[in-house]
Design a protein around this nucleic acid. Structure first.
Length: 255
DNA sequence: GAACCGTGGTG
DNA sequence: TCACCAAGGTT
Protein backbone atom coordinates (compact mmCIF):
# COMPACT_ATOMS: atom_id res chain seq x y z
CA UNK A 1 0.00 0.00 0.00
CA UNK A 2 2.85 2.33 0.74
CA UNK A 3 4.39 2.04 -2.71
CA UNK A 4 4.23 5.58 -4.12
CA UNK A 5 1.47 6.45 -1.67
CA UNK A 6 1.68 8.78 1.35
CA UNK A 7 1.58 7.09 4.75
CA UNK A 8 -1.30 9.17 6.04
CA UNK A 9 -3.49 8.04 3.16
CA UNK A 10 -2.61 4.38 3.69
CA UNK A 11 -3.23 3.97 7.41
CA UNK A 12 -7.05 3.80 7.47
CA UNK A 13 -7.08 1.37 4.53
CA UNK A 14 -4.42 -0.78 6.16
CA UNK A 15 -6.34 -1.04 9.43
CA UNK A 16 -9.58 -2.01 7.72
CA UNK A 17 -7.70 -4.47 5.52
CA UNK A 18 -6.01 -6.24 8.42
CA UNK A 19 -9.26 -6.42 10.35
CA UNK A 20 -10.90 -8.16 7.41
CA UNK A 21 -7.92 -10.31 6.39
CA UNK A 22 -5.57 -10.79 9.37
CA UNK A 23 -3.42 -13.42 7.63
CA UNK A 24 -2.23 -14.18 4.09
CA UNK A 25 -4.49 -17.25 4.05
CA UNK A 26 -7.53 -15.09 4.82
CA UNK A 27 -6.81 -12.90 1.81
CA UNK A 28 -5.94 -15.86 -0.39
CA UNK A 29 -9.34 -17.39 0.36
CA UNK A 30 -11.35 -14.63 -1.33
CA UNK A 31 -11.52 -13.76 -5.05
CA UNK A 32 -8.95 -11.22 -6.26
CA UNK A 33 -11.76 -8.84 -7.14
CA UNK A 34 -12.55 -8.51 -3.44
CA UNK A 35 -9.03 -7.20 -2.88
CA UNK A 36 -9.44 -4.74 -5.75
CA UNK A 37 -12.77 -3.57 -4.29
CA UNK A 38 -11.34 -3.13 -0.79
CA UNK A 39 -8.40 -1.24 -2.27
CA UNK A 40 -10.93 1.50 -3.04
CA UNK A 41 -9.20 4.68 -4.22
CA UNK A 42 -5.72 3.96 -2.93
CA UNK A 43 -4.46 4.08 -6.50
CA UNK A 44 -2.36 1.73 -8.63
CA UNK A 45 -4.99 -1.02 -8.29
CA UNK A 46 -2.62 -3.59 -9.78
CA UNK A 47 -1.03 -3.54 -6.33
CA UNK A 48 -4.24 -5.01 -4.89
CA UNK A 49 -4.11 -7.78 -7.46
CA UNK A 50 -0.44 -8.40 -6.75
CA UNK A 51 -0.98 -8.41 -2.99
CA UNK A 52 -3.69 -11.01 -3.43
CA UNK A 53 -1.39 -13.06 -5.67
CA UNK A 54 1.38 -12.82 -3.08
CA UNK A 55 -1.04 -13.99 -0.39
CA UNK A 56 -1.86 -17.03 -2.52
CA UNK A 57 1.84 -17.72 -3.10
CA UNK A 58 2.62 -17.39 0.61
CA UNK A 59 -0.27 -19.68 1.51
CA UNK A 60 0.54 -22.33 -1.09
CA UNK A 61 4.33 -22.25 -1.11
CA UNK A 62 5.44 -20.90 2.27
CA UNK A 63 3.07 -22.44 4.78
CA UNK A 64 1.10 -19.24 5.17
CA UNK A 65 4.05 -17.40 6.74
CA UNK A 66 5.56 -14.31 5.12
CA UNK A 67 9.15 -15.27 4.19
CA UNK A 68 12.09 -13.63 5.98
CA UNK A 69 14.73 -14.01 3.30
CA UNK A 70 15.15 -11.13 0.86
CA UNK A 71 15.79 -13.50 -2.03
CA UNK A 72 12.61 -15.45 -1.29
CA UNK A 73 10.57 -12.29 -0.75
CA UNK A 74 11.69 -11.09 -4.18
CA UNK A 75 10.00 -14.09 -5.79
CA UNK A 76 6.60 -12.90 -4.56
CA UNK A 77 4.37 -10.98 -6.97
CA UNK A 78 4.57 -7.23 -6.46
CA UNK A 79 7.49 -7.42 -4.03
CA UNK A 80 10.49 -5.61 -5.44
CA UNK A 81 13.82 -4.61 -4.00
CA UNK A 82 12.54 -1.98 -1.61
CA UNK A 83 9.62 -3.96 -0.21
CA UNK A 84 11.63 -7.17 0.21
CA UNK A 85 14.23 -5.34 2.27
CA UNK A 86 11.66 -3.39 4.24
CA UNK A 87 9.88 -6.60 5.26
CA UNK A 88 13.12 -8.36 6.18
CA UNK A 89 14.38 -5.37 8.17
CA UNK A 90 11.22 -3.97 9.79
CA UNK A 91 9.09 -7.09 10.24
CA UNK A 92 11.88 -9.51 11.05
CA UNK A 93 14.71 -7.29 12.30
CA UNK A 94 17.33 -8.47 9.84
CA UNK A 95 20.22 -6.24 8.90
CA UNK A 96 19.77 -4.97 5.33
CA UNK A 97 20.08 -1.53 3.80
CA UNK A 98 16.56 -0.25 3.10
CA UNK A 99 16.43 2.62 0.65
CA UNK A 100 13.26 4.44 -0.28
CA UNK A 101 12.66 7.86 -1.77
CA UNK A 102 13.07 9.51 1.65
CA UNK A 103 16.36 7.79 2.42
CA UNK A 104 17.71 8.69 -1.02
CA UNK A 105 16.96 12.35 -0.36
CA UNK A 106 18.51 12.34 3.12
CA UNK A 107 21.71 10.75 1.80
CA UNK A 108 21.83 13.13 -1.16
CA UNK A 109 21.65 16.14 1.11
CA UNK A 110 23.37 15.15 4.32
CA UNK A 111 26.15 13.04 2.82
CA UNK A 112 26.55 14.05 -0.83
CA UNK A 113 25.74 17.73 -0.29
CA UNK A 114 23.23 17.86 -3.14
CA UNK A 115 19.72 19.25 -3.10
CA UNK A 116 18.18 16.16 -4.68
CA UNK A 117 19.19 12.57 -5.22
CA UNK A 118 20.17 11.32 -8.64
CA UNK A 119 17.59 9.06 -10.28
CA UNK A 120 17.27 5.78 -8.32
CA UNK A 121 20.00 3.21 -8.90
CA UNK A 122 19.76 -0.04 -6.98
CA UNK A 123 23.51 -0.64 -6.91
CA UNK A 124 24.54 2.90 -5.98
CA UNK A 125 21.73 3.43 -3.48
CA UNK A 126 22.36 0.19 -1.61
CA UNK A 127 26.11 0.79 -1.53
CA UNK A 128 25.61 4.29 -0.13
CA UNK A 129 23.25 3.06 2.59
CA UNK A 130 25.45 0.07 3.36
CA UNK A 131 28.34 2.42 4.07
CA UNK A 132 26.24 4.25 6.66
CA UNK A 133 24.46 1.31 8.28
CA UNK A 134 25.54 0.43 11.84
CA UNK A 135 27.05 -3.02 12.31
CA UNK A 136 24.72 -3.88 15.18
CA UNK A 137 21.55 -5.57 14.02
CA UNK A 138 19.10 -3.57 16.12
CA UNK A 139 20.91 -0.30 15.54
CA UNK A 140 20.73 -0.97 11.81
CA UNK A 141 16.96 -1.41 11.97
CA UNK A 142 16.62 1.87 13.86
CA UNK A 143 18.92 3.61 11.38
CA UNK A 144 16.90 2.40 8.40
CA UNK A 145 13.68 3.62 9.98
CA UNK A 146 15.27 6.86 11.16
CA UNK A 147 16.58 7.80 7.75
CA UNK A 148 13.16 7.23 6.18
CA UNK A 149 11.36 9.09 8.93
CA UNK A 150 13.73 12.03 8.78
CA UNK A 151 13.16 12.30 5.04
CA UNK A 152 9.40 11.99 5.41
CA UNK A 153 8.94 14.52 8.21
CA UNK A 154 11.91 16.90 8.27
CA UNK A 155 14.16 16.59 5.23
CA UNK A 156 11.20 16.87 2.90
CA UNK A 157 11.35 17.36 -0.83
CA UNK A 158 9.78 20.81 -0.75
CA UNK A 159 10.59 23.24 2.07
CA UNK A 160 12.79 21.06 4.28
CA UNK A 161 12.61 21.99 7.96
CA UNK A 162 16.33 22.41 8.53
CA UNK A 163 15.75 24.36 11.75
CA UNK A 164 14.23 21.23 13.27
CA UNK A 165 16.75 18.78 11.82
CA UNK A 166 18.89 16.78 14.27
CA UNK A 167 21.52 16.35 11.55
CA UNK A 168 21.77 20.02 10.60
CA UNK A 169 25.22 20.38 12.17
CA UNK A 170 26.69 17.66 9.98
CA UNK A 171 24.62 18.19 6.81
CA UNK A 172 26.86 18.58 3.76
CA UNK A 173 24.18 20.36 1.77
CA UNK A 174 23.70 22.94 4.52
CA UNK A 175 27.46 23.36 4.94
CA UNK A 176 27.80 24.02 1.22
CA UNK A 177 25.17 26.78 1.39
CA UNK A 178 22.24 24.83 -0.10
CA UNK A 179 23.45 24.69 -3.72
CA UNK A 180 20.80 23.99 -6.33
CA UNK A 181 20.51 20.58 -7.91
CA UNK A 182 22.95 20.18 -10.81
CA UNK A 183 22.45 16.55 -11.74
CA UNK A 184 20.30 14.66 -14.15
CA UNK A 185 16.70 15.77 -14.47
CA UNK A 186 14.10 13.32 -13.32
CA UNK A 187 11.53 12.24 -15.88
CA UNK A 188 8.47 14.43 -15.65
CA UNK A 189 5.23 12.82 -14.63
CA UNK A 190 2.61 13.03 -17.33
CA UNK A 191 -0.52 15.03 -16.76
CA UNK A 192 -3.32 12.97 -15.21
CA UNK A 193 -6.34 14.96 -16.40
CA UNK A 194 -7.49 13.53 -19.70
CA UNK A 195 -5.00 10.67 -19.62
CA UNK A 196 -5.59 6.96 -20.23
CA UNK A 197 -4.82 6.53 -16.54
CA UNK A 198 -7.80 8.66 -15.64
CA UNK A 199 -10.06 6.68 -17.96
CA UNK A 200 -8.82 3.37 -16.48
CA UNK A 201 -9.63 4.78 -13.07
CA UNK A 202 -13.16 5.72 -14.15
CA UNK A 203 -13.89 2.27 -15.55
CA UNK A 204 -12.44 0.53 -12.52
CA UNK A 205 -14.43 2.76 -10.16
CA UNK A 206 -17.55 1.66 -12.01
CA UNK A 207 -16.57 -2.01 -11.66
CA UNK A 208 -15.90 -1.53 -7.93
CA UNK A 209 -19.21 0.23 -7.36
CA UNK A 210 -21.43 -2.75 -8.22
CA UNK A 211 -21.53 -6.52 -7.93
CA UNK A 212 -23.37 -6.75 -11.23
CA UNK A 213 -21.63 -6.90 -14.61
CA UNK A 214 -20.89 -3.55 -16.22
CA UNK A 215 -21.90 -3.29 -19.86
CA UNK A 216 -20.24 -1.63 -22.83
CA UNK A 217 -23.16 0.80 -22.92
CA UNK A 218 -22.52 1.85 -19.32
CA UNK A 219 -18.81 2.17 -19.96
CA UNK A 220 -19.52 4.36 -22.96
CA UNK A 221 -21.13 6.95 -20.67
CA UNK A 222 -17.98 7.31 -18.57
CA UNK A 223 -15.82 9.18 -21.09
CA UNK A 224 -16.42 10.90 -24.43
CA UNK A 225 -13.51 9.40 -26.38
CA UNK A 226 -14.31 5.82 -27.51
CA UNK A 227 -10.72 5.15 -28.55
CA UNK A 228 -9.47 6.02 -25.06
CA UNK A 229 -12.17 3.90 -23.49
CA UNK A 230 -11.13 1.00 -25.67
CA UNK A 231 -7.47 1.33 -24.72
CA UNK A 232 -8.32 1.61 -21.04
CA UNK A 233 -10.66 -1.38 -21.05
CA UNK A 234 -8.29 -3.65 -22.95
CA UNK A 235 -5.53 -2.59 -20.58
CA UNK A 236 -7.64 -3.50 -17.57
CA UNK A 237 -8.47 -6.86 -19.16
CA UNK A 238 -4.86 -7.68 -19.97
CA UNK A 239 -3.81 -6.66 -16.45
CA UNK A 240 -6.45 -8.96 -14.98
CA UNK A 241 -8.21 -6.10 -13.20
CA UNK A 242 -11.34 -6.79 -15.23
CA UNK A 243 -12.74 -9.93 -16.81
CA UNK A 244 -15.29 -10.41 -19.60
CA UNK A 245 -18.29 -12.26 -18.14
CA UNK A 246 -20.35 -12.25 -21.34
CA UNK A 247 -20.34 -10.48 -24.69
CA UNK A 248 -20.00 -6.78 -23.87
CA UNK A 249 -20.10 -7.05 -20.08
CA UNK A 250 -17.36 -7.07 -17.50
CA UNK A 251 -16.68 -7.46 -13.79
CA UNK A 252 -13.84 -7.55 -11.31
CA UNK A 253 -11.89 -10.83 -11.37
CA UNK A 254 -13.73 -13.51 -9.43
CA UNK A 255 -11.44 -16.53 -9.59
C1' DG B 1 16.73 2.47 -19.28
C1' DA B 2 12.23 4.22 -20.02
C1' DA B 3 7.28 4.03 -20.17
C1' DC B 4 3.51 2.86 -17.75
C1' DC B 5 0.57 2.42 -13.84
C1' DG B 6 -3.95 6.25 -9.68
C1' DT B 7 -5.22 9.39 -6.59
C1' DG B 8 -5.04 13.18 -3.63
C1' DG B 9 -2.50 16.70 -0.95
C1' DT B 10 0.30 20.84 -1.21
C1' DG B 11 2.39 25.35 -2.15
C1' DT C 1 -4.28 27.07 -11.22
C1' DC C 2 -1.24 23.59 -11.68
C1' DA C 3 3.27 21.39 -11.31
C1' DC C 4 5.17 18.54 -8.06
C1' DC C 5 5.32 14.34 -5.63
C1' DA C 6 4.24 10.41 -2.59
C1' DA C 7 7.62 3.76 2.17
C1' DG C 8 7.85 1.29 -6.18
C1' DG C 9 7.19 -2.62 -9.38
C1' DT C 10 6.66 -4.66 -13.83
C1' DT C 11 7.30 -4.95 -18.62
Amino acid sequence: MLQQTPVTRVIPHLEAWLTRWPTPADLAAVPPGEAVRAWATLGYPRRALWLHAAAVEITENHGGIVPQDVGVLLTLTGIGDYTARAVAAFAYGHRHPVVDTNTRRVIARCVAGQAEPAPPSRTRDLAAMNALLPADVRAAAVFNAGAMELGALVCTSARPRCADCPLAALCAWRAAGYPEYQGQKKTVQKKFAGSDRQVRGLILAELRSTRHPVTDAEIATLWPDPAQLGRALSGLLSDGLAVRVAAGSYSLPHE
